[in-house]
Structure formats: structure tokens, C-alpha cells
Amino acid sequence: MKVGTHLKNTSLDMAHHHTEDNFHQTGEIPKPQTKAIWRTFVILVAITALEFLIAFTMDAGTARNAIFIILTIFKAFYIVAEFMHMKHETKTLMWSILIPLALVVWLMVALLAEGSYYYESITNYFR
């Protein structure tokens, strides 16, 4: 798997640097390598189906929401790692995209707490 990707990247680089050569050498086209793509597709569909199953068999609540969020993160991982090819990029690129997203997590914690506080103060005010 790893080797295959390497080869692909190399051929892409070659295409970059030897534009003319490649243009004249397009006679042979390699066979498609789509196994990993379809596997990811099956995983994404399976997780989505599971989410629907849970939505109609489990009562709403914190536990169900937690399951939904975990499954969503799983789906996000497969889309970013496989479809967007993040798994095969350099670690530097990966972390420079992922680390700033911690700010989103902070915003979420802060604003959800803020919303709950607002609701509490309104309900207690009118009680």
C-alpha cells in the first residue's frame, strides 16, 4: 500500500519536471487502484446506516448524542485520511492543519457553557 502510493507520487513528480517527455509517453495507462477507495466508501455507508439505526432504536439523551459524535469523528477521519489523502502527506502538513482546529474545540466548550448559563439565568429569573 505504502509502496504503491510512493510510486504514484514519484510518477506525479516526474510529470511535473519532464512535461514534454510525459506528453509523448502517454501510450500506456496503468490499471486503476481503487480497492482502498471502495473500502472507505463501504465504511462510510455502514457508519451512516448505523447512525440511522441508533436514531430510531435508542431514546434521545446524552448517551445517544455521545455515540453520534464519536461516529461522526470516525466518518470525518476516513474522509480526511483516505479521500483527502491526509494520511499520505507529511507529518508537518498534517499537524499544521489539525492543531489550529483545537481553537474550534475551545469555542465549542465556551459557547455551549455560555448558552446553558443563559438558559439557567432566564428560567431562574422568572421562577
Partner: peptide
């Protein structure tokens, strides 16, 4: 997150 905020505030 704004959706979450609004939902928690209602």
C-alpha cells in the same frame, strides 16, 4: 457552534 449555543439557550 452558534446552533449549539442557541439550542442550549432555549
Amino acid at each position: 457552534i452558534t446552533y449549539g449555543l442557541a439550542r442550549h439557550a432555549h
